[in-house]
């Protein structure tokens, strides 16, 4: 099984988000970076699959120089090889252009499986896995909560549906699968792993060398803003009956929930 895991470096949830003056981007100096959460689950799923069925796990990331760290972390946890597509302005690519870049970088590798996290914590498109499936002619399943290898050419996945329902689906390989957080327990990077990481190769591509014909943005960023906190608390006082009728009144006429 030759598995590629797409991994993105995103700002840590607790990072201070400060907008640039023209509100077109966020200031990068105050940000602590980390691996996108669901990508760590995707990596773990790939490593478990490799441990059970053999094969190779390749961690792939697209982004600025510091993105190599997510590849290194993946290598320390057990991935075999890294594939880094360098692009300092990766934030400026819309999801379709991003997918085209990945397609070019991955097409000759002939992966059996491409795993990616369900969506990135920063831009949250949740489309990359799907687009890649289309462009690389692979089967696709999204929101995967469990995997089972049937044989060399087929895989079964458990997908999350609405309302607490699940569905098992069988797919032909090659397949591109997006992984939901929580399906496994991502492992801890041991020092031994970190030491071994130093001996593992990372292939580096410059995104400008990649033939990305047609990767012109179709989506343009207009403006970024931090959502305004609107918090209005009204205390309703009186006897329980009065409170109930006032509350009903509020809901019907002011909040208009009914």
């Amino acid at each position: 099984m030759k598995i590629c895991v797409l991994m993105k470096q995103v700002p840590d949830n607790d990072s201070a988000i400060i907008l640039s003056n023209d509100s077109s981007s966020i200031k990068l100096n105050d940000i602590t970076w980390c691996t996108n959460e669901s990508d760590t689950y995707a990596l773990e799923e790939a490593l478990l699959m490799k441990e059970a069925h053999g094969g190779e796990v390749v961690a792939c990331s697209f982004g600025r120089e510091s993105s190599q760290q997510v590849i290194k972390d993946a290598l320390a946890k057990g991935a075999d090889r890294g594939l880094y597509i360098s692009e300092e302005e990766s934030d400026g690519f819309d999801i379709l252009s991003t997918a085209k870049i990945f397609t070019q970088a991955l097409k000759d590798e002939n992966f059996d499986l491409i795993f990616s996290g369900l969506q990135s914590n920063d831009s949250g498109n949740a489309q990359l896995g799907l687009l890649l499936a289309e462009m690389l002619n692979m089967s696709h399943a999204a929101l995967v909560m469990g995997t089972e290898v049937l044989n060399d050419t087929r895989i079964k996945v458990k997908q999350e549906l609405e309302g607490g329902w699940f569905q098992w689906t069988e797919l032909d390989l090659p397949a591109s699968i997006t992984i939901q957080s929580g399906l496994n327990k991502p492992r801890y990077a041991s020092l031994r792993g970190i030491m071994m990481m130093k001996k593992k190769p990372i292939d580096i591509f410059d995104s400008s060398q990649i033939d990305s014909t047609g990767s012109k943005n179709k989506i343009f960023l207009d403006k970024m803003y931090i959502p305004q906190k609107v918090k209005e608390t009204t205390f309703i006082e009186g006897t329980p009956d009065e409170i109930a009728s006032k509350l009903g009144d509020l809901m019907i006429n002011d909040i208009k929930v009914f």
Partner: peptide
């Protein structure tokens, strides 16, 4: 921790 990479789950989180 260093060899096996198996701290208790919550301990591992605090370490990370």
């Amino acid at each position: 921790v260093l060899s096996e990479g198996t701290p208790p789950e919550m301990a591992g989180e605090s370490l990370e």
